[in-house]
Simulated scan of single mutants.
Amino acid sequence: MIPRDLEDKLHNALKNMPVVALVGPRQVGKTTLALQIVQDNIRKKSSYLDLELDTDLSKLSDTEGYLKLFKNQLLIIDEVQRKPDLFRVLRGLVDIRKRAGEKAGQFLLLGSASRDLLQQSSETLAGRIRYLELSPFSVMETYKNDPLGFNPLKLWFRGGFPDSYLATTDDESWEWRSDFISSYVERDIPLMGPQVSATRMKTFWSMLAHYHGQQIVLSEIGKSLEVSHTTIRSYLDILTDFYMVRQVQPWAGNTKKRLIKSPKIYLRDTGILHKLLNISDFDSLLGHPVVGASWEGFVAENIIVNLSNKWRYSYYRTTTQTEIDLVLEGPGSQVWAIEIKRSAAPTIRKTFHTACEDIGATRKFVVYSGMERFPMPEKTEAIGLIDFLKLIKALDTPTT
């Protein structure tokens, strides 16, 4: 088992909040992490309920009566979005127990979709719940698990879903990703609410892969699928809400330049991206037109998932193609401009420095595929992904 970076945050949340929601895509390891941390760190009796099982779901026919049986226990409820009226009951129980002196570690909710979970709980459990998102394996997690045998190219090619990354062969990883995509569009997405044709959603998902790292024109995709641009927007939101797609918003600061206003689209897991593009081996990836965008998305996603909530992220692009791949705005009015390069000998275009002046960048980085850290012209620093993530972590770690 590869230890997850979220473990300490989850443990801390359970010590301080009555309800904790651990959300993320299916098959990412939420249940494994929840059961592991309860076994190792929580000195409290716990019980587990999986709402995908009809037998467990039926136990909540009298939700309030059943939940009252678990006083002074931690109850883990998996696939909680299957029971949306649960949150109203949880609020009452939390408030009753708080008056009785039981404050933290009452309920750990696991959910595979963000939209329903957030909508149902944002009002009813405000101030009583903390959300944590578990993503597929990150570069830092795999690096810390085996520093000497660390291979970022394997993670980039296969993606970070545990069963894909840890598969015994590339072929087995490929088969797992194929099954995952089919299951998601045929069963998981419809089961969690949206009623969309599985064939149409899979086609849309595959088309979206060709826009990886770009802004999409909704009307163009809608014309291809013979649906309206508003329908395409809803499809995009579904995949975003189910943690398959990340929409990086454009930089929103003040400038006289004409900016691109639409979000940049990334498929969050590059293993899924490569499967949708039918890239079945690493050599094919290196020769594919998407290779640069794939690497950019891989690096960007690893940076974003390692940011604390003290940071905001965006991208910068003008109508004249002056751009910055990733803009990070953090504590102390820091504005970091990040150029992502796959080359081991990166170069920078002049337009990058122009864009940095536009946004008032306080630091400039080129995050590249090498391991060395060295200065580049115009106060820019080349840095490997691992060292860059360590830099962010150090800034977010409180000093004593």
Score class of each variant (00 low, 15 high):
1 M>H: 11
8 D>G: 12
20 V>Q: 02
37 I>N: 05
46 S>I: 09
47 S>N: 14
52 E>K: 15
52 E>T: 10
55 T>V: 15
58 S>I: 05
59 K>Y: 13
65 G>Q: 11
68 K>W: 14
69 L>I: 14
75 L>S: 04
82 R>P: 04
97 R>D: 09
98 K>C: 03
99 R>P: 03
102 E>H: 14
102 E>R: 13
109 L>A: 06
110 L>C: 06
110 L>V: 09
111 G>F: 10
113 A>Q: 14
116 D>P: 12
119 Q>D: 11
122 S>D: 07
129 I>A: 06
134 L>A: 07
135 S>Q: 12
138 S>A: 06
144 K>P: 06
152 P>K: 07
153 L>Q: 14
154 K>E: 08
155 L>P: 05
156 W>R: 08
167 A>Y: 12
171 D>L: 14
176 W>C: 05
181 I>Q: 01
183 S>R: 13
184 Y>I: 12
191 L>N: 13
191 L>A: 15
193 G>T: 10
198 A>S: 15
198 A>I: 08
208 L>Q: 02
223 K>H: 14
225 L>I: 04
227 V>M: 10
232 I>V: 14
239 L>K: 00
244 M>I: 08
246 R>Q: 01
250 P>A: 00
251 W>Q: 00
256 K>Q: 13
256 K>S: 13
257 K>Y: 12
269 D>T: 10
269 D>C: 11
272 I>E: 00
272 I>C: 01
275 K>D: 08
278 N>E: 13
279 I>W: 03
279 I>K: 05
286 L>F: 11
293 A>H: 04
295 W>G: 01
297 G>M: 02
302 N>L: 04
302 N>E: 08
303 I>E: 05
307 L>P: 05
310 K>I: 07
311 W>Q: 02
311 W>Y: 08
313 Y>K: 10
313 Y>E: 02
320 T>F: 09
321 Q>G: 00
323 E>L: 01
323 E>N: 04
324 I>F: 07
325 D>G: 02
330 G>Y: 05
333 S>K: 15
335 V>G: 08
336 W>R: 11
350 K>Y: 14
350 K>S: 14
366 V>F: 04
374 F>H: 11
377 P>S: 05
380 T>F: 08
381 E>P: 08
386 I>E: 09
390 K>D: 09
393 K>N: 10
395 L>W: 13
